[in-house]
Amino acid sequence: MVAVYRHDVHKLRGRSHGAAADTYHGVPVNETVPLHADRDGAQLSRPRGEPEQTVANHASPYRLSLLTGETAVDTERIRVAADGGVQDLLTPADPERLHARWLTSDVAAAFNESLYYPYTSLQYHTLLTAALLHSYRAGHAFADLALVATAPDTTNAGGELTRDPETALAAEGVEPHRAILWTPDIAFHVTATPGDRPAAGLGDQPARSFADTWSRLPDHPLDVDGERRWRILDAQLRRIRSWSAALAFIDEFTAAHASAGVDRGDGT
């Protein structure tokens, strides 16, 4: 599972696949993800076939925000990346720690998964691909998988509400490699074993189907009836087809409308 979190390092460095290096600070990177998980992960967020530029004058590795319409990067993220933020996403040899870092990373959130589709998210493409690979390695097919929506626990050992890699590693509600979104208000897992948790099947094959899948969830922890902010979010999610773009939108939206006392800490 280590390789899946390192397979798109060239995108974090603003390089094309053809110009990708085999190592980064001595760590093997840009390796092929087995079982077609990378291909399937891409099809969850991008159209099939030859890519086309969808936003004029934005040939940049930095993601555009669906929430603001602006580039989803600031000087602090650039500074952190330059100071080793990218390396922190790659160097742990423990795949569960790699998952926790990607799940909570502001640095990874700044990049898109394709220059042609700048509203997509490299962070969430990587997490989706990891979830697919984890399930495929366990013998499950794509059609066996479901999206599970739950209320998260982002309380650290000190009783503070936060979101950082160590808290994610310790959280009972974060399943390694299956968790694809973890905010103070909602968490998502992709799994073949949802149990009695609210879940909706992903479909027969990978497709840009987030809006349909979200609409089919029988329940979720957002109080749509009681709070206007969640009604707004719910309405938008019923329109967004790209999985990685939708997950990035939820992340940004919940941060902008954060519950009181939540520290959105970031280990990278």
Rank of each mutant, 00 (worst) to 15 (best):
L181T: 09
N30S: 09
R6E: 02
A157T: 15
Q205R: 15
H134Q: 13
A199P: 02
A260C: 01
T167I: 05
S105F: 01
A20N: 03
G85C: 11
G201Q: 08
E50L: 15
R163Y: 10
A245W: 02
V174Q: 03
A21K: 12
V80W: 03
E31T: 14
R46T: 08
D40F: 10
D153C: 11
R228P: 00
T213G: 01
Y24A: 12
E227Q: 14
H125Q: 12
E175V: 15
E50K: 15
Y136R: 08
N30H: 07
N30G: 04
D204E: 14
P61G: 02
P92R: 02
P198G: 13
T75W: 09
A21D: 11
L217C: 11
S121R: 00
S215C: 07
T150W: 09
A260I: 12
L169K: 00
D225E: 12
P118L: 03
S215H: 11
T154Q: 02
G226Y: 02
I186N: 07
P152D: 05
W243N: 03
L145Y: 10
Y116K: 14
R97P: 01
F249P: 00
L98C: 05
A141N: 14
D223W: 02
S65I: 11
D106F: 04
L128T: 12
H220K: 02
D88H: 13
P51I: 10
V4K: 00
H125L: 14
E70C: 08
D219E: 13
H140M: 04
A72G: 05
D251C: 04
A100V: 07
Q123K: 15
T213A: 06
Y119S: 06
A170W: 04
A211M: 09
T183K: 00
H134W: 13
L66M: 14
D106S: 11
D234Y: 00
A72C: 08
Y124K: 03
L181E: 06
G159H: 04
E31L: 15
L222V: 00
L90N: 07
H17Q: 14
A246H: 09
D251E: 11
E76I: 14
W102H: 03
F249V: 05
P184R: 01
L217W: 09
A20M: 05
Y136V: 11
P118S: 06
A235H: 05
G261Y: 04
D185M: 05
L66T: 09
P194R: 12
P194A: 12
L233N: 01
V4D: 02
V73S: 01
W214H: 03
V262F: 14
P198R: 10
G267H: 09
M1I: 10
H125T: 12
T104N: 01
D164Y: 08
R15I: 07
D8C: 13
T191G: 05
A138M: 09
R101P: 01
G173M: 10
L133T: 11
S209L: 07
G69H: 06
L237E: 00
R48A: 15
R241S: 14
R6P: 10
G139E: 13
L202W: 05
R137Y: 06
L127E: 02
R228A: 02
E70A: 14
P198F: 11
E252A: 14
T129W: 01
A21R: 13
A19G: 08
Q53A: 13
W214T: 08
